[in-house]
Design a protein around this nucleic acid. Structure first.
Length: 475
RNA sequence: GCCGAGGUGACAGAGUGGCUAAUGUGACCGACUGCAGAUCGGUUUUCCGGGAGUUCGAAUCUUCCCCUCGGCACCA
């Protein structure tokens, strides 16, 4: 089976072939840490987390790089307003971001560089660009990329002509008057006395918006990436600027072989964004839904499609993910009642069929929706088998491992089973109450049985009777 | 203006030339159960925006039209 990936560069599904063997250099644009991340960020980072996990699952040796932009005009503005040190503000929101990522079960990148740790690299690259005639310094100490030096690459990713770009940006003419061409973009911005800045050959200043990604991507990939990802809104100008300046600097192309972009998260069919002020932070949403529910909600739609945020959709996800988790719990429970050398009931074949179905779905540009559809079919067929009393240990164990295997890709099962609980009742007490209840049930003393069940319920213990006996779990 | 994505059942959302069009959620009915939970079956479901065309055959290809959303130097 061949993995196929949609490439924004060519607007086509292409067979995925890394530049060197099985090694994949993957770079995803991380956050600018001037505020808490909202659910739109989560959408992007979860999407690429799944892509990265699937690549690894498929046997690729993935180096996953995600930057943190911890200096930028927005950070400066925010810090000025709240009279904080910009770097401290950035550090605070970096911590907040990392906490969100962990809660959403997003694996840490292999490298997570910060812009402020790479000012020297940035300065060196800008110097290289100036020396090569790709950038120029102005009398104000700003450095701009000279767009006309790379005319053949303008519009390479956005698929726009220079003329089209000019028309679109027409009303913004004259914002910075020291540019030679209105589409030239800043590599270095000089800071005034009150603003934070670093010494450079041109001025005390700070990096422009796009250059930091070039600096870090080039440093950690060696110059060329296999995959560069990010939100759809970064295609232009951010990613296009990266291509121009990176290829100008390294003299090599392509800067990235595949460009992947995730679709937006909308709310009431409008893009969720800071500027529209219609966003929910990840922390807001985590107060109302479990991390697994949120992840499932995000993964249950193909990464390039738009997802609409609504309580209805979150509640659907909550129910759906519960179904998966219950099936996993029930499989673990079935393990207890299984026997050596008992019947397989077609489980091995079911697992292997499902694995293949999920792989073919994922190989088609990471079609998570279809893949999870296959998982649900698996669960529907699995459930009746789990209630059988003559199941083979080996087969059930296979099923349990299969859930874990698939979850390495999606990350939606509850992980913290061993978590200590703040409870007023011990497992032993629960077990003995269940035993008493069993006797009552044997005598058809339903009143006592129900009373015990209610008693346990009050302490957060859920009782479930089945053919294989009574089981309990924390609510 | 330029560029792009999309319109599939109650809702969400796959499928992109060929079995009665996945899957999830909801609602209703039934099975199982002392009851509950979990689960299973059935119904809602002959649902592919509209017209024309290509084809033995179209949700899928071509063309025209209608509608929605997004990008175009703040953005995941």
């Amino acid at each position: 089976m061949v993995l196929r990936v949609y490439n924004t560069l060519t607007r086509e599904l292409e067979n995925f072939e890394p530049m060197v063997g099985d090694h994949v250099n993957m770079y995803v644009c991380g956050p600018t840490v001037y505020d808490d991340c909202h659910l739109g960020h989560a959408r992007s980072y979860v999407a690429f987390d799944v892509i990265r996990r699937y690549l690894r699952y498929s046997g690729y040796d993935v180096k996953y790089i995600m930057n943190i932009t911890d200096i930028d005009d927005k950070i400066i503005q925010r810090a000025t307003r709240s009279q904080e040190d910009p770097l401290k503000l950035a550090a605070k929101f970096t911590d907040s971001f990392l906490e969100d990522m962990e809660r959403l079960n997003i694996h840490s990148p292999d490298v997570q560089p910060k812009v402020t740790d790479h000012i020297n690299e940035i300065i060196n690259i800008i110097s290289g660009l100036i020396d090569g005639g790709f950038a120029y310094v102005t009398s104000k100490g700003n450095v701009y990329f000279n767009l006309l030096s790379s005319q053949d690459k303008i519009g390479i990713l956005s698929h726009q002509t220079l003329q089209g770009l000019l028309e679109g940006s027409g009303y913004r003419v004259g914002v910075e008057d020291d540019k030679r061409h209105q589409l030239d973009f800043a590599l270095w911005k000089s800071s005034d006395e009150t603003e934070i800045g670093w010494e450079s050959p041109w001025s005390k200043g700070r990096p422009g918006w796009h250059i930091e990604c070039t600096a870090m991507a080039v440093k950690y990939s060696g110059g060329q990436l296999d995959i560069h990802g990010g939100g759809m809104d970064l295609v232009f100008p951010h990613h296009e600027a990266e291509i121009l300046q990176s290829e100008a600097y390294t003299g090599r192309g392509p800067f990235s072989k595949y460009w992947m972009h995730n679709g937006f998260l909308t709310i009431d069919k409008e893009k969720m964004s800071k500027s529209l002020d219609n966003f929910f932070t990840i922390k807001d949403v985590l107060k109302r839904y479990s991390p697994e529910t949120i992840r499932f909600f995000l993964v249950y739609t193909h990464y390039r499609s738009t997802i609409d945020f609504s309580d209805d959709n979150l509640q659907e996800a909550e129910q759906a993910v519960k179904r998966v988790q219950t099936a996993f719990e029930n499989s673990n429970y079935a393990l207890i009642n299984s026997k050596e050398d008992a019947k397989d009931h077609g489980l091995l074949e079911l697992v292997s069929w499902t694995r293949n179905a999920i792989k073919s779905a994922m190989n088609e540009d990471f079609n998570t929706r279809e893949a999870l559809g296959h998982l649900f079919v698996f669960i529907r067929k699995l459930n009746p088998i789990l209630s059988k009393t003559d199941l083979s240990y080996t087969s059930i164990e296979h099923v349990v491992h299969f859930f874990e295997e698939i979850d390495d890709i999606f990350g939606i099962l509850v992980k913290n089973n061993g978590q200590e609980r703040d409870t007023k009742i011990s497992s032993d007490e629960i077990e003995s109450l269940i035993l008493i209840r069993e006797q009552a049930r044997g005598n058809k003393d339903w009143a006592t049985a129900d009373q015990i069940r209610d008693q346990l319920q009050e302490k957060g213990v859920v009782i479930e009777d089945s053919k294989n006996g009574t089981r309990w779990k924390w609510q």
